[in-house]
């Protein structure tokens, strides 16, 4: 188990390194006259040159990249070229906001999707078909369209929630809940649809296995058969879909945050990429890459827990 974890972590580090190297290379090539962009058209050529020197733009690629890498390994991603704020500081506070949205969504998704999926798999018939159609719609319609609809209905028309703005959880728990409810609902619908479909499918598959009949023939209660045995066997594929959802939700959150004016990674990534703020973009790439690696590791470990064959090999 320890070896398995270490091997996965090693693969994750390689992956992060590969992603960041490629990203750095591409951003370097697309460079342009960053110093001029930062200082504006009215700045003199002299100050622009000075700025370029200050940012290290005149250095060749390799030393520049190695310098960045050295900092990155120690957790220092430099400062934003535009706001001069340290990148680590800039990202970490916003990361917490985005993660709270995504994790909230994942928890709700897991609970609701398992409930719906198992129910549909056991009921079949008309109820199942209704769920099927709803989940097709839920999967098909992009989360930001749902967000726009939610804002219009629940915030602008009904006035139940404030349309925009974010309240720190430290400031007011109810305020925070009010500010994340609509975004989480918007993000959850598609995720619930996708995961519930998978749960339903794998539960139906598992229910058809021979050992289900044998368990029943031994007099084991139906709820135990379903929730202990079938669900555990169906859990693997469902977890894999949940992991993919997590990665996808990071993207969805960027757009949904924009709608609700939530100060997460969304606004800052949009700003940084449109400005070409290399240190911030690199910081974002590494931060999100790291989250993805960690999530996949957790999912792999959970898979091992569910499936003894994975664990023992």
């Amino acid at each position: 188990m320890v070896r398995f974890t270490l091997r996965r972590l090693g693969a994750g580090v390689v992956l992060l390194f590969a992603i960041s190297t490629i990203a750095y290379l591409l951003l370097y090539l697309s460079g342009g006259d960053i110093a001029r962009t930062i200082l504006g058209q009215s700045a003199s050529q002299e100050t622009v040159d000075l700025k370029a020197e200050e940012l290290g733009l005149n250095e060749p690629l390799i030393p520049r990249y190695l310098g960045w890498l050295k900092g990155a390994v120690t957790g220092d991603f430099g400062r934003s070229w535009f706001s001069s704020q340290p990148v680590t500081e800039l990202i970490s506070s916003r990361l917490a906001v985005t993660l709270s949205l995504v994790i909230g969504t994942i928890i709700i998704t897991a609970i609701v999707a398992v409930a719906i999926g198992v129910w549909a798999a056991r009921k079949r018939g008309a109820a199942d078909r209704v769920i099927q159609v709803l989940s097709i719609l839920g999967f098909a319609i992009p989360s930001f369209l749902i967000a726009i609809a939610l804002v219009n209905v629940f915030a602008l028309n009904l006035g139940w929630f404030k349309p925009t703005g974010y309240v720190q959880i430290g400031t007011s728990v109810t305020g925070w809940l009010g500010s994340v409810t609509l975004p989480i609902i918007a993000l959850s619908i598609g995720a619930v649809a996708a995961v519930a479909q998978q749960v339903r499918g794998s539960v139906i598959d598992a229910l058809r296995q021979d050992w289900v009949r044998t368990l029943r023939s031994r007099g084991v209660r139906e709820n135990k058969v379903v929730y202990k045995h079938v669900l555990r066997n169906a859990g693997g594929p469902a977890l894999a879909v949940l992991a993919l959802q997590f990665v996808g939700l990071l993207g969805g959150a960027v757009i949904v945050e924009q709608i609700f004016a939530i100060p997460g990674l969304g606004p800052i990534s949009i700003l940084a990429t449109s400005q070409g703020d290399l240190p911030v973009v690199m910081g974002l790439v590494v931060a999100i890459g790291l989250i993805v690696v960690l999530v996949n590791l957790v999912i792999d470990l959970l898979q091992g827990f569910l499936n003894p064959k994975v664990r023992l090999s």
Binding site: L15, L26, T273, V281, L284, V285, G289
Partner: peptide, 20 residues
């Protein structure tokens, strides 16, 4: 495949925009 699937699409697309 596992490399590409671990990439958060939106970040790559935003980075792409920064590049091209």
């Amino acid at each position: 495949t596992s490399l590409i699937m671990a990439l958060p699409g939106i970040v790559v697309l935003l980075a792409t925009r920064a590049v091209i």
